[in-house]
């Protein structure tokens, strides 16, 4: 029993260091219970966890992990003060990097294309999360892993339209891959500014299924959390890669999956996340390989917004 306890304490230390999202928990206090309730979770892979840290910190807790696993009898060094101090140091260092580092102004102003997400290693997958209708009781499955040669991400799984037997759901069948919201030092929410670009650029290899590309705006209002801007991405299947270019003017506005009557263009200066949804009502396996996701400026594209507001639906807007 004592050994299990030690193991758990060892895990605790690992979690404490390996989870950057929990950095502010000691300060918040309220979330502290959740923080310590993650003790029972299995060990996160130490390589993945520590690869995000740099400097002397990494060496330290790498050593600690090894120590815990090999000889649990040895008393690990548990200190709340040290943990808090280290986390604070980590965040202050990031803050300093944010302030000091930068790019020359002409670089930023004259930028024509930018790769926002690319898949070249395991740490790129940590920026993404996948979900399927298992969360509502469905049977779809979706997985995300690195493709061959570590050159792309492979999103694969099985779609199943069988509705969950909960008495109220009548339809089901979706799989999605959503990017995480970028965080800066002290876990502040960040957003992307794409206001100088006008086209989304994806290099994908699909199996012929249509996907929906959803872009979420960075918003602070709880009531608007289900609003997003969407358009479709059609893959052609076969062995060929394809380069999909979607102008931002094509994205339509929806709330809780329903297209709104009042349409407006996507605000490009505060982009929070991007997602891909598959829900084409066809049961069976699917896959989508993504090489990179970028944005670029297409000077030939001058359309501002593709959808006019209907005078029949909202007569007050159109006069």
């Amino acid at each position: 029993m004592a050994l299990v306890h030690k193991l758990l304490r060892g895990t605790y230390i690992l979690r404490k260091f390996s989870k950057p999202a929990s950095a502010l928990y000691p300060f918040l206090g309220i979330r502290f219970a959740e923080y310590s309730s993650s003790l029972q979770k299995p060990l996160a892979s130490p390589g993945k966890a520590s690869s995000q840290r740099e400097g002397d910190l990494q060496g330290d807790h790498q050593k600690e992990v090894a120590l815990d696993i090999t000889s649990p009898e040895e008393k690990p060094d548990v200190s709340f003060d040290k943990a808090i101090r280290d986390e604070a140091m980590y965040h202050f260092r990031h803050l300093k990097d944010e302030i000091v580092e930068g790019r020359p102004l002409h670089d930023v102003l004259l930028e024509q294309a930018k790769v926002v997400w690319q898949f070249r290693g395991k740490e790129d997958l940590d920026k993404w999360t996948v979900t399927s209708d298992k969360t509502i009781g469905g049977r779809s499955e979706v997985f995300l892993k690195m493709g061959k040669n570590n050159q792309s991400a492979l999103l694969y799984g099985t779609l199943s339209c069988e509705a969950p037997q909960d008495g109220e759901s009548t339809r089901s069948g979706y799989c999605a891959m959503i990017s995480r919201i970028p965080r800066s030092a002290f876990e502040r929410k960040m957003s992307y500014d794409w206001s100088q670009f006008n086209t989304l650029y994806l290099r994908v290899h699909g199996d012929g299924r249509p996907w929906m590309v959803n872009i979420k705006e960075d918003i602070d209002f709880f009531q608007r959390r289900n609003q997003m801007y969407s358009y479709f991405m059609f893959t052609r299947g076969g062995p060929y890669w394809q380069e999909v270019k979607i102008p931002f003017s094509k994205f339509f506005f929806s709330n809780r999956g329903r297209i709104r009557d009042v349409q407006h263009e996507l605000p490009l200066d505060k982009i929070s996340s991007i997602g891909f949804t598959l829900a084409d009502k066809v049961d069976g396996p699917f896959f989508l390989e993504i090489d990179f996701i970028g944005v670029f400026t297409d000077p030939a594209h001058t359309e501002e917004f593709a959808y006019e507001n209907s005078p029949e639906l909202n007569p007050r807007l159109v006069k």
């Binding site: 012929g208 299924r209 249509p210 299947g237 062995p239 066809v282 049961d283 069976g284 396996p285």
Partner: peptide, 20 residues
């Protein structure tokens, strides 16, 4: 290879080989 072409994932099955 299951060539699932959009609407027809259930019907288009077969083996494919490519030369490169």
């Amino acid at each position: 290879r299951l060539g699932s072409l959009g609407l027809c994932a259930k019907s288009l099955a077969g083996h494919r080989a490519c030369m490169s």
